[in-house]
């Protein structure tokens, strides 16, 4: 007769699928916030470049806050602040909002650097050729400046993807949280952490290698 019930079960193929699914969630939340955050950040970067004095007293300090306060504090703060002003956000939505602003704050300085990387003489030349301001921005500044700061942008993307692990504090089951759940059940931390780490590595390493190649090709 069995006198003890086993609470802990072994690690099976279903668990691997569970981790894979969680990796997709990590990918989804980071892709969403990076996409929106990049657009927003580029806009902020443009504002920082154009409205020099005004912007440096208004949006620059606000963006600075997102860079100077730990993401985990931002997440907890926003998650607890949203209900106060009557917004009922689930962990995923709160995570996306904060990650988006976090990305935007990081991208803003990158975008500003990109705009400033385009020589003023080149922009004047394009304007002299009869190109409008917006055309100049999209057809001259974007391709040239974008290329100059592409590696920096990839750095931001990888950083945000790794930092998305922190959304687990709010209870969103992404890769790291899923590994925690499995560890509690199977009691095999080393194996599961190794697998979760391998997933992160597989998401991040190819992108960073690609960015390196790109940078080397452009520095020639």
């Amino acid at each position: 007769m069995q006198d003890s019930i086993s609470f802990f079960t072994g690690f099976g193929i279903n668990d691997l699928l569970f981790l894979g699914e969680a990796a997709l969630k990590t990918l989804w939340i980071s892709a969403l916030s990076i996409a929106i955050g990049t657009l927003l950040g580029t806009f902020f970067g443009w504002l920082l470049h154009e409205g020099k004095l005004v912007a440096s007293f208004t949006i620059a300090p606000i963006l600075d806050v997102f860079r100077s306060v730990p993401l985990i504090i931002q997440l907890v703060l926003f998650y607890n602040f949203a209900p106060i002003i009557g917004l009922n956000f689930d962990p995923f939505a709160s995570g996306v909002v904060i990650l988006t602003f976090y990305t935007a704050a990081l991208v803003a300085s990158v975008a500003r650097g990109g705009i400033e990387a385009v020589p003023a003489s080149m922009r004047r030349a394009s304007r002299s050729l009869g190109i409008s301001y917006w055309q100049d921005l999209f057809y001259v500044v974007l391709p040239i400046g974008g290329r100059a700061v592409f590696p920096a942008w990839i750095g931001v993307v990888l950083g945000v993807m790794k930092d998305s692990a922190l959304v687990s504090v709010l209870g969103y089951v992404e890769l790291l949280k899923a590994s925690q759940v499995l560890i509690t059940r199977t009691q095999e931390p080393l194996l599961i952490l190794a697998i979760a780490g391998a997933f992160y590595f597989a998401l991040s390493y190819p992108i960073s290698r690609y960015a390196n190649k790109f940078e080397q090709r452009w520095s020639k």
Partner: peptide, 10 residues
């Protein structure tokens, strides 16, 4: 460089 800091702490 390619895994989250939180993962490393865990």
């Amino acid at each position: 460089r390619n895994t989250p800091a939180l993962f490393q702490l865990f």
